[in-house]
C-alpha cells in the first residue's frame, strides 16, 4: 500500500553535496543521511573530512565518501563529477550549499567601493562555478531522465538590505553605507531568475531544479545586537538554526518533491513576508 513516508526515502540514491559539513549545509547533510542516501561530500580537504565521514557513516549506517573539491578550480569540479558518477553509476541529487568568499581580494573604504578584483573573483567562484556545476550535474541527469538539483540561494536574492539591522557600532561598515556588497545581490538575484530558466530547460528531460533561500543563521559569529534587531524583522521572532533547512532540502531532493520545480523558497521565519 502507498505510504507517504516512503516518498522521502533516499535509499539507493546517489547524492553529491557541496559545503555539507558546516552551517546550513550540515542541516542538509543530516537530513539526507537520515533518509538513507549514498552520500558524496565535496570537500576542500578529504583528509580533514575523514573523521566526520567515518562518524556519519557509522551513526547512520550509510555509505559516505569524501571527494576532493575546489570551487575556484574548474578542473577540480570536472574531476569531482567524473569521480562521483563513475563510482555511483548515477547522480540522483546534487545539493550545492558551498559559497566561497575569495580571500585574496581587496575592497574600498565602503561596501559600495568593491574592488574589481573582488568583483571578478566573486563572479568567477560563485556565479560562474555554480552555473558550471549545475550544467555538469544536469548533463548526467538529462541522460538518466531523472534527478533533482537544489541550490542555495538567499533571502538576499529576493529582497534588498534592511539598513536598520546593521545600525550597530560593531557592524558599522554596512550601516554607514546602506547597501551591502554588490556581488552577493547580483549573484543571488541572477540565481533566482536562473532557477526558473534552468527549470524550463530541464523540465522536458524530467529533471527538477529549485533553490532554497535562507535568511540569517544563528551562528557563533552573530552578535547579540544584530540578532535582536534582525529577529524583530522576522515573523517568528528569531534567527534560523542550521536544521531549519533540513525538511525542505529532503523534500526537494526526494520524490516527495516530484512535482516541485523552478521554485525559490524562502526559509526565513517570515522575514521576506514582512
Amino acid at each position: 500500500m502507498f505510504n507517504t513516508y516512503d516518498l522521502f526515502s533516499m535509499k539507493g540514491k546517489n547524492v553529491l553535496i557541496t559545503g555539507g559539513r558546516v552551517m546550513y549545509g550540515l542541516g542538509a547533510t543530516m537530513a539526507l543521511a537520515d533518509a538513507g542516501a549514498n552520500l558524496y561530500l565535496a570537500s576542500h580537504s578529504v583528509e580533514s573530512a575523514r573523521e566526520f565521514v567515518e562518524q556519519l557513516s557509522a551513526e547512520k549506517g550509510i555509505k559516505v565518501t569524501a571527494v576532493p573539491f575546489d570551487q575556484g578550480d574548474p578542473a577540480s569540479i570536472d574531476a569531482m563529477f567524473k569521480t562521483v558518477i563513475a563510482d555511483g553509476g548515477s547522480l540522483d541529487a546534487f545539493i550545492h550549499c558551498s559559497r566561497t568568499i575569495p580571500s585574496s581580494t581587496k575592497n574600498g573604504p565602503t561596501p559600495w567601493d568593491t574592488g574589481d578584483d573582488a568583483i571578478e573573483a566573486n563572479v568567477r567562484t560563485n556565479s560562474a562555478a555554480t552555473i558550471h556545476m549545475v550544467q555538469l550535474a544536469g548533463a548526467q541527469m538529462v541522460k538518466q531522465r531523472s534527478g533533482s538539483i537544489v541550490v542555495f540561494g538567499s533571502m538576499m536574492g529576493l529582497i534588498g538590505v534592511e539598513k536598520h539591522n546593521y545600525d550597530i557600532p560593531e557592524q558599522g561598515t554596512f550601516g554607514a553605507v546602506g547597501a551591502g556588497g554588490h556581488t552577493y545581490a547580483v549573484d543571488k538575484s541572477g540565481l533566482t531568475a536562473w532557477i526558473r530558466h534552468a527549470a524550463s530547460y530541464y523540465g522536458q528531460y524530467g529533471v527538477r531544479i529549485n533553490a532554497v533561500c535562507p535568511g540569517g543563521l544563528n551562528s557563533h559569529r552573530t552578535s547579540e545586537d544584530f540578532a535582536r534587531q534582525y529577529s524583530k524583522h522576522t515573523q517568528l521572532g528569531r534567527l534560523a538554526n542550521q536544521e531549519d533547512v533540513s525538511g525542505l532540502i529532503l523534500t526537494l531532493a526526494s520524490d516527495a518533491g516530484a512535482y516541485l520545480t523552478g521554485l525559490n523558497i524562502p526559509i526565513d521565519g517570515g522575514y521576506t513576508a514582512l
Binding site: W112, S127, I131, Q135, M156, G157, L158, I159, G160, V161, K163, V177, G178, A179, G180, H182, A185, V186, D187, K188, S189, G190, L191, T192, A193, W194, I195, R196, H197, A198
Partner: peptide, 21 residues
C-alpha cells in the same frame, strides 16, 4: 542559452540593493 536567465535576472534584486545606497 546556459547563461541567459542568470544574466537577465541579476538586476532584479540588485536594483533593491543599489536603491539602499
Amino acid at each position: 542559452s546556459l547563461l541567459r536567465g542568470y544574466v537577465r535576472g541579476s538586476c532584479v534584486n540588485y536594483v533593491r540593493q543599489a536603491a539602499g545606497f
